[in-house]
């Protein structure tokens, strides 16, 4: 009997409801972390505001143009801290503890389980702020994205998320090879700052690399530019190709690494 999309859909929502129940169980916790997340977001935005007290452009981007990018960055951050960082943390933790066996013996795709098992809802406010900031900045700019631009921007965002997930999975899969590396899941959170600014601040080779083979520079810049009405087909092509390569590499590396999985002796 093959698993249908319907089965995966059911499992996905079952996990979401489990975490909703857990959030409700620990609601004080939820409020506290929602406040902390919001605080960080406002702190970040505040920093950009201070920068623009002393300049009119950063990397050639005006204040409101940058806020579009910052809004998108905040949205990405909300997803990273709600979903990816937890999934990857439990993934590496389970590899080290031997509990990964629980996942491997289930008749459902392991990578699907890894990514969908966990999430929290603490970053919902952060996501809302991100969306709000993006829309507000576009209003300030008087920019009205066409339906096509909107679709392309969403496509860019989707590709960005897939690229991030694939790369992060690769990095975390190193847990199969390294005896102990608690902060392996800190690598991506540090890298994400690269796309908290427009790609144009980076120069020469670094700029080239970050807008092509390692498209960290494109994650927020591309959808922001698209929303501003500047379509760059080359950038899109690079993001698409890099994402495909990342996904294929991640799948192969993961499969290869499972073979190394020894679990804990007892």
């Amino acid at each position: 009997m093959k698993y249908t999309l319907n089965s995966y859909w059911k499992v996905f929502w079952k996990f979401r409801s489990i975490h909703a129940m857990r959030t409700f169980e620990y609601r004080k916790n939820f409020f506290f972390w929602a406040v902390v997340a919001t605080m960080w977001t406002l702190f970040n935005i505040f920093f950009y505001k201070i920068l623009y007290q002393h300049t009119t452009t950063v990397g050639g981007w005006g204040e409101y143009q940058l806020y579009t990018l910052v809004g998108l960055y905040t949205m990405f951050d909300a997803i990273i801290w709600s979903v990816l960082s937890h999934s990857m943390k439990y993934y590496t933790r389970d590899i080290y503890s031997g509990e990964f066996s629980n996942l491997l013996t289930k008749p459902i795709n392991t990578v699907f389980l890894i990514f969908t098992r966990y999430n929290n809802y603490n970053n919902l406010p952060r996501f809302v702020i991100g969306v709000g900031l993006t829309i507000w900045s576009l209003l300030q700019l008087g920019a009205a994205p066409t339906p096509l631009s909107l679709m392309l921007a969403l496509l860019a965002i989707g590709l960005g998320l897939i690229w991030i997930s694939a790369v992060w999975l690769c990095i975390s899969t190193l847990a199969f090879y390294v005896e102990k590396l608690d902060n392996i899941n800190e690598v991506f959170p540090a890298l994400r700052r690269i796309y908290s600014y427009p790609a144009s601040i980076y120069t020469n080779t670094l700029h080239l690399v970050l807008t092509t083979v390692i498209p960290l520079g494109l994650i927020t810049t591309l959808p922001a530019e698209t929303l501003h009405g500047h379509l760059s087909l080359t950038s899109f092509a690079w993001l698409l190709v890099s994402t495909l390569i990342a996904v294929v590499s991640a799948a192969l590396f993961f499969r290869f690494s499972i073979k190394r999985y020894a679990g804990v002796a007892n």
């Binding site: 920068l51 002393h54 950063v58 050639g60 690269i194 600014y197 601040i201 980076y202 120069t203």
Partner: peptide, 9 residues
């Protein structure tokens, strides 16, 4: 990253 930001400013 800050280096690049300030350089551009």
């Amino acid at each position: 990253i800050m280096f690049f930001v300030w350089q551009s400013i």
